[in-house]
């Protein structure tokens, strides 16, 4: 039944996914609002000034921005039905994403062992919730990307896999957009 209407189906699927992304942005908005409210409630503990390592965070930002770009190149390759390039660009995207998550986990671990966990203050609870929710999205995206790439590698590019790749790249661009605001509101303004 779904096979019967292939051409309009693609745009409908993408529109449905877009609506999901918009609601997900509202989830992030509530977490941003919580963070903005609790930002100064450090409960005598350290604030962003003492905690954030800016060159480290800039590196994370660059990794994610570049991965957003390479996922776009992957989509262009998918529309050209170039399987090898799809695997190459999305492979690079996945590696950059993995590097980003690893750096974030390292930062979280570092904060935790120094005694600055989410239990330290309202500021840190909001920080871990906001940044952690984004990191969770990235991790789920990586899982999705890995399974999809295995499928493309094994079965090649079909209408269905190309559609899934385009949804995945929308998701990935969207997460980069959210990160711009985490980078700006949490980190840059945190040390400004």
């Amino acid at each position: 039944m779904t096979q019967a209407i292939p051409s309009t189906d693609v745009t409908k699927t993408e529109f449905g996914f877009w609506i999901y992304l918009m609601t997900d942005l509202i989830l992030f908005a509530t977490l941003f609002a919580t963070y903005a409210v609790l930002k100064n409630n450090t409960f005598g503990g350290p604030g962003g000034h003492e905690l954030f390592n800016m060159p480290f965070v800039l590196t994370e930002t660059m990794l994610l921005l570049t991965s957003s770009y390479t996922s776009g190149l992957g989509i262009l390759a998918a529309h050209r039905l170039d399987k090898r390039k799809v695997l190459l660009w999305f492979g690079i995207t996945a590696l950059l994403g993995l590097a980003f998550v690893s750096m974030e986990l390292y930062e979280f671990h570092h904060l935790y062992v120094e005694g600055n966990s989410w239990r330290r203050s309202g500021f840190l609870s909001a920080f871990f919730t906001l940044v952690g929710t984004h990191g969770l999205h990235i991790s789920i995206g990586l899982l999705w990307m890995t399974t999809l790439l295995v499928k493309v590698y094994r079965k090649g590019l079909s209408t269905a896999t190309i559609r899934k790749l385009s949804l995945l790249s929308m998701f990935w661009h969207f997460l980069d957009v959210v990160w711009i605001f985490i980078f700006t509101i949490v980190y840059l303004i945190g040390v400004a």
Binding site: S68, Y69, T184, I189
Partner: peptide
Amino acid sequence: AVIGLAILQLFVQMFFFL
């Protein structure tokens, strides 16, 4: 200024990437 640059980047990525 910093928030303005972020909003500008939002529009750039919405237009060119999405």
